[in-house]
Every structure is written in structure tokens, then in C-alpha cells.
Amino acid sequence: MIEGALWRKWVFYNIPLILFVFVLLFPFYWMIITTFRPDGELYRPWNAVNYMPFWTNNPTLEHIKYLFEETNFGRWMMNTMFIATISTLISLFCGVLAGYALARLNFPYAGSLGTVIFVTYLVPQTLLFIPLAQIIRNFELGDTPWSLILTYPTFLIPFCTWLMMGYFKAIPKELEECARIDGASRWKAMVYIIIPVAVPGILSSGIIAFTLSWNEFIYALVFLSSPDQKTVPVGVTSELIRGDVFFWGPLMAGALLGSIPVAIVYSFFVEHYVSGLTGSVKG
């Protein structure tokens, strides 16, 4: 906290904080207000007498109705949920095992292998989607959810592995040694002791992996083409921007509804999430 006179506290703490909160929350506010604003107000010129950009007196559900009746939005939500869940589970499974191995097993080049895995995470998707498109075509997976379920782990597994490696390293080695003296094999010690202790770390990487795959755009845009296979980010932008016409109301309604599952996941695990990121294992 800032010590001293009241004005210092306002200038150096409260006002910057208010600005940050405003900057961060305004897009959400804009998204919400646009969702519920009728078209007549949305396309009113800025110099009209009754121009009122930050509020509406006639809230409407017509955009949400449009989204569900005129587009495949419900289907997109199901697609996204399915793809994000499965690819997160695959990545977590691999990431936990690989992270454990890199953190705990002594094998040659474990350190450099960890670095290499991290470097693969740094390869941009804009570069990777071209060779991946080849692979997807060769396996004839184009335009199926599996094209994404199998490609998302290319960036999710390195991410989960790296995060879990750090978390496993923070768990005292003695816990596992004690379990092994107590009669557990390495595998049992991992299953009964290390993984339960690492649950906060697993949840955090799961949440982030889920969010990353929920929001993913490029692969979904490239690998999926038919409207009923699309994910929310791609579906909303490709179906609701026609040429140079932006259907702002349904677009924002789609963005709003699309962010709700992620918000629910976050709020559900927020306590574990925080302790996972700060990495505290207290005996």
C-alpha cells in the first residue's frame, strides 16, 4: 500500500486502479449494451438528436433470437464445447505425464528436452497451420471436429507440460520418496500422492487450455468449412459479417453467449486456480 498523504493514495493508487478497471470492463459493457440494443438505435447516426451510445431505453432480445433461429449458433456452441473439452483432456493427460517425467525422472537430456518442448510452444500458429493443413488433408479429417481435436494439442501439450513441470518441481521430493519407502511403486506414488497434491496445478492448466482452445481461431477457420461444423469464434464472424455488412447486434450477442461458459469455468475453480498459479504446496 502507498503510505502518506491522502492525495498520494488517490493519484498513485486509486485513480490508476479505476482507469484500469474501466479500460478492462468497458469492452464487456459495450458488448452487453449492443446485444440488447434494437437495430434502430444501433444504426442511428451520431449527430441525431436522440443519439445515446451508452444506454438504451428499449432493451430487446431480438438479436439473441436471431442468433438461435437464423444461424447455427446452438450447434456452434456444442461443437466448441466438444472440441475444447476433448482436446483439453488429451493435453492434460499428456502434459501431466510429460511434466512429471521432466521434473522427476533422471534421464539424459531431460533439461534440454524441456527447453525444446517450450520452444515448440513458441512456434506461431500462423506458421504451423500450413503443414498441419497438409496432414489433415492426408488423413481426410478436414471439416470434422477431429481436425481440431488433434491439432489443438500441438500448442496445448507444450503449454500444459511446461506448467505442470514447474508445479511438480515445487512439490517436495521427500513426499514421493516417503511413499516409495512406504511401499508404493513409482507409478503408485504418482497416482496416490503426487497427482492429488498437484490438483490445483492440473486445474489451472486445464482452465487455461480450455480457454485457449475455446478461443482458437486460425485452425478452426482453415480446417472447417461447412456452417454446421464451425466453432463459435469462426461461426459468428463468418456468418454474421457478410461482405462489408456487420450484423453488430447478433455479433455481440454471439460474443456474449460464447464467453459465458469460460466465465463459468473460471469462477468455478477460481480458488484452486489462484493457488495453482502461485504454486504453494504447504505440508
Partner: peptide
């Protein structure tokens, strides 16, 4: 059986 300096109790 071994007793460790930091006790190594299973926290969960």
C-alpha cells in the same frame, strides 16, 4: 521406514 527432516506428510 524413514522419517524426514521436513516430515513429508501427505498434505491431502
Amino acid at each position: 521406514a524413514m522419517v524426514f527432516q521436513n516430515y513429508a506428510l501427505y498434505p491431502h
